[in-house]
Amino acid sequence: MSSTRHHDGPSADPSAPAVRTAALESLLIEKGVIATDTVDAVVDVFENDVGPRNGAQAVARAWVDPGFKERLLADGTAAAAELDFGGLEGEHVVAVENTPEVHNVVVCTLCSCYPWPLLGIPPVWYKSPAYRARVVAEPRAVLREMGLDVPDGVELRVWDSSAEVRYLVLPQRPAGTDGLSEPELAALVTRDSMIGVGQPNSAP
């Protein structure tokens, strides 16, 4: 197996990732480790069912239910389990709260650790070497490039989820949303706001 860099070439190229992946799938099926339809099922779940909507529901619940918010900040995994969100990479979820004084942003500097049960599979940019390295070194500049201006008076905290812990940012509830229902609030919560590189959408 080559570990050198390569790019997708003609499909006959045995070093092309798609070809290597297909070869692994065949081998695993042959060994009886997996079945093709279970691979399809897992792909489907992660592409369609698991996604940032779970996290958005947790955030909206925290906005309307102070008791839930307290539990979410005390033990993110247990609070997520209350909503039936759990599983792989959701074992040690810690929620960090944005306030007028503090803005939180999450990165995984080593690979791409991420709370799958709440946010789905991390987006492409989250896994990029540029984001992983730069958001630690110059978070304010990176956030500005991504369209989020954090005022100088606001403390910026960068959380590295490389170890056990998976962080979820609890964004501030947008102004003018007092009359909204919990599902309406959840619809305002963006994935980026739960990573800390964006804000929730404004009230409709």
């Binding site: 992660f46 592409e47 789905g120 599979i121 991390p122 987006p123 492409v124 940019w125 990029s128 070497p129 540029a130 984001y131 390295a133 730069r134 958001v135 070194a137 110059e138 990176v142 490039e145 991504m146 994935r191 980026d192």
Partner: peptide
């Protein structure tokens, strides 16, 4: 890493 820009932000994971 200073010169590397964070890539565009499509929503899809794959």
């Amino acid at each position: 890493s200073a010169v590397r820009a964070v890539p565009e932000r499509p929503d899809r994971p794959f």
